[in-house]
């Protein structure tokens, strides 16, 4: 009973600062909306010979412009509501349709990247030559801004007839394999020398040592890296959508919005992307707790 109350208090004391800060950010956002949109609104009044505007009217009007410099939060939410709930999913204007395009690319890229990353890590841990020759390149591969290469990969693959999901997923793969490899190399090497020696006294072969000792002890590392990997896989998917001429996906919405000055559309795509990324990371977290429970790790 006391434990339950304590847990509740703990939860409140942890959540309340976050809520307060979030509220402050939203308040600042509203203030910035008024501040940034006011010059244009005053211009409209001037041109319409409207000299009798009041401050409250100005504030109200700055939040209902069609192409504001900064849309207010409720405009963005309204736009998201209009393009998700009120539009058919099959419609090209539906945000759900575009989100699905981005989400599927992200997931395919992430899955390939995870498998590739794990395989590389297994190779690196078991072969000294691979460790010494490949590992430095795995690390330096990330100092190359791959996102800069994205348009070329997509245009070139497009030229030889590979279209649609795969070229974009390739960029997500490239971005997401790295944290997985680095994390898994660390994880597969994390078992103590004592445990490794124990496996040897059992005369376990490499295969058994891997499945019974290395793999289980690498799992926490795997989940930690998967959380990073899935969020940057999404960045890759969004950027991958830019050079194809804004066909579909959240990146395409961003680009189209910036061409036509549709700021509300840009912001709604951004909020959607943030929501998706947050959900994906949370899902990995849920999988983590589930696996922990199955493996008998005590919850902290």
């Amino acid at each position: 009973m006391t434990n339950d109350v304590k847990g509740k208090q703990n939860w409140i004391s942890r959540a309340s600062p976050v809520l307060v800060v979030t509220a402050v950010i939203i308040a600042i956002w509203y203030a910035a909306t008024v501040f940034l949109n006011a010059p244009f609104q005053k211009d409209i009044y001037k041109r319409g010979n409207n000299t009798t505007w009041t401050t409250s009217q100005l504030i109200k009007d700055t939040m209902s412009q069609k192409r504001p410099v900064l849309p207010s939060p409720h405009q963005v939410i309204n736009e998201i509501y209009k393009t998700t709930v009120l539009k058919k999913i099959t419609s090209k204007r539906s945000l759900i349709y575009h989100s699905w395009v981005t989400l599927s690319t992200t997931l395919v890229g992430f899955l390939i990247g995870s498998v590739l990353g794990i395989l590389l890590a297994v190779g690196i841990v078991h072969s000294r030559t691979l460790d010494k020759s490949l590992m430095p390149w795995v690390i330096s591969s990330q100092t190359i801004p791959i996102l800069a290469v994205a348009p070329m990969i997509i245009v070139v693959l497009n030229a030889i007839g590979v279209q649609g999901l795969l070229p974009k997923a390739f960029i997500s793969t490239y971005l997401s394999f790295f944290p997985i490899t680095v994390g898994m190399v660390k994880g597969l090497r994390s078992p103590d020398v004592l445990y490794l020696d124990l496996m040897r006294t059992y005369s376990a072969n490499k295969w058994q040592t891997f499945w019974k000792l290395r793999w289980p002890s690498a799992l926490p590392y795997l989940f930690a890296s998967m959380k990073i990997a899935i969020s940057i896989a999404m960045v890759g998917a969004i950027v991958g959508e830019l050079p194809t001429g804004a066909v579909a996906g959240l990146g395409a919405r961003l680009l189209a919005g910036s061409y036509y000055g549709q700021t509300v559309q840009i912001w709604s795509a951004l909020v959607m992307a943030a929501f998706l990324a947050g959900t994906l990371v949370a899902l990995v977290g849920v999988a983590n707790t589930y696996v922990d429970k199955r493996m008998g790790v005590k919850a902290q």
């Binding site: 800060v21 969004i238 961003l254 000055g261 992307a273 947050g278 990371v281």
Partner: peptide, 26 residues
Amino acid sequence: LQKGLMPIGNLMSALPIVGVAPIMVM
């Protein structure tokens, strides 16, 4: 403030922030 900003900062680090690029260009 730290307790309030840490989770938000962690969340923001995971978001596709490159997306603000068109807004900044505007």
